[in-house]
Design a protein around this nucleic acid. Structure first.
Lengths: 143, 143
DNA sequence: TTTGGTTTTGCAACTGACTGTCAACTGGCC
DNA sequence: GGCCAGTTGACAGTCAGTTGCAAAACCAAA
């Protein structure tokens, strides 16, 4: 497995090209998403956005996350027992290991697992459209 | 991968042994769970239970699912874009392939994938407590 | 078998995470 | 700068599930 390399993307240009109107609110949210390395939920994004622009509403955050999800600019993850968390879609595909004690999310990738998934789906007569692989674990105590 | 063998379990005795009071409602729900081969959600269980005992309430279904989940008698699956679905915990561990057109759930198992997951977690300094692997796919059109 | 004291239940009100409605506002092509 | 479809904030509504409470029901003990 391989840790993903951070990557700062210029969403605005690309989204504008796709006909998306870039409002002040969207601009603020996009900046937050492109800068963050973690996986914030809507409320956290709202909090960070409010610091930039106190007039922004939570509805707008939700609407924007939905829009960006549909445009493929971000990925939504519904980890167990919590609200959806988001990340920008810039990097290459990866899965997640969630620290059940801290909620931290670690990204990993395994071509071998992906390949096995394809084989399994094929043997059952299916084509995979997408998948979800999440490991929930606890940090090993040293010693 | 291997399809799981159906298995009818006597929950009542085991639960009673663990100090769980077996009420009329729980008995009905347990019978439904032990007989079904699919992955019903709370509302569907409620519907089936209502046929047995019209006085049963949806709250009781939810409460019972929570209790049985905590006792380890059933597994709860929160597949994408829908309510939790349940299955009895009798069989051996498996993952799920969800038909995105019909909602059908197919069970599969891959020791190789499990093994790779363990290796990945270990290499990241974690012990896996549990995991979630779901393939979302479309049936391949013959021809 | 009756009793008694927890537990559990049904109902209804509540919660969290969104989604929809609508009048007011505003990007961005002209 | 003007226009106007697209977007926003406020807030009501939805959906899945949880919770408070008085009444009912387990089931261990007598």
């Amino acid at each position: 497995m391989v840790k993903r390399t951070p990557k700062r993307i210029d969403y605005e240009k690309e989204l504008r090209r796709q006909g998306v109107r870039i409002t002040r609110q969207r601009s603020v949210i996009l900046a937050i998403l492109s800068e963050t390395e973690d996986h914030p939920d809507a409320l956290e994004i709202f909090r960070r956005a409010s610091a930039e622009d106190p007039s922004i509403s939570l509805s707008t955050v939700y609407r924007t996350m939905k829009l960006l999800g549909d445009m493929g600019a971000i990925h939504r993850h519904a980890f167990e027992g919590g609200p959806s968390r988001f990340e920008h879609a810039g990097g290459d595909h990866h899965d997640h290991l969630i620290d059940i004690e801290t909620g931290d999310v670690i990204e990993f990738k395994s071509d071998r697992i992906e390949q096995l998934q394809d084989e399994i789906a094929k043997s059952l007569g299916y084509d995979i459209v997408h998948h979800r692989l999440e490991l929930y674990g606890r940090k090993r105590r040293a010693g």
